[in-house]
Simulated assay, not measured.
Amino acid sequence: MRVSVELDPDVDDEAPTGDTITVYDERHHVTYWRLLDANAEGADWKEVARIVLHRDPLGDEFRTYRCWQSHLERAQWLSREGYRKILEQAAANKA
Rank of each mutant, 00 (worst) to 15 (best):
H29V: 12
R34S: 06
Y65R: 14
T17V: 14
E47A: 07
W45H: 00
V48K: 05
H28Q: 09
I51W: 01
Y65F: 13
H29M: 10
R63C: 09
W33Y: 14
A40V: 02
W45N: 00
R63W: 12
T64L: 06
A43Y: 07
T20C: 01
V23K: 04
W68D: 00
A49I: 08
Y24I: 04
R63K: 15
F62D: 15
D25C: 06
F62V: 15
E61P: 01
H28C: 10
E26N: 09
V48Y: 08
V23H: 05
G42D: 08
H29W: 15
W33C: 09
I51N: 03
T31P: 02
E26S: 09
N39G: 05
L36Y: 02
P16L: 10
T20G: 02
D60A: 15
R55E: 05
Y32D: 08
V48I: 12
L35C: 03
T64M: 03
D37K: 11
Q69E: 15
E41A: 12
T22K: 05
W33I: 12
W33N: 11
F62Q: 15
T22H: 06
W68Q: 01
L58Q: 14
D25K: 01
A38Q: 05
R34G: 00
G18R: 10
A38C: 10
V48G: 07
A15R: 02
W68H: 10
R34C: 07
T64F: 06
E41Q: 11
K46P: 04
I21R: 04
A49M: 06
Y32Q: 09
I51S: 03
T64A: 09
Y65I: 02
R66F: 07
E47L: 08
D19P: 01
G18N: 13
E61R: 10
D44C: 07
L53W: 07
W33T: 12
G42S: 05
H29A: 14
L35V: 05
R27T: 11
K46T: 10
R55P: 06
C67D: 03
K46F: 00
A15G: 00
T22M: 04
N39D: 15
Q69F: 14
E41L: 11
A15Y: 03
V52E: 11
F62R: 15
D37H: 12
T20R: 13
D44F: 03
R34W: 01
S70W: 04
P16T: 13
H28D: 02
L36D: 07
Q69I: 14
E47W: 03
L58C: 11
Y24C: 04
R50Y: 05
R34D: 08
L35K: 00
A49F: 02
R63V: 11
L58V: 10
Y32K: 07
P16Q: 09
G18V: 14
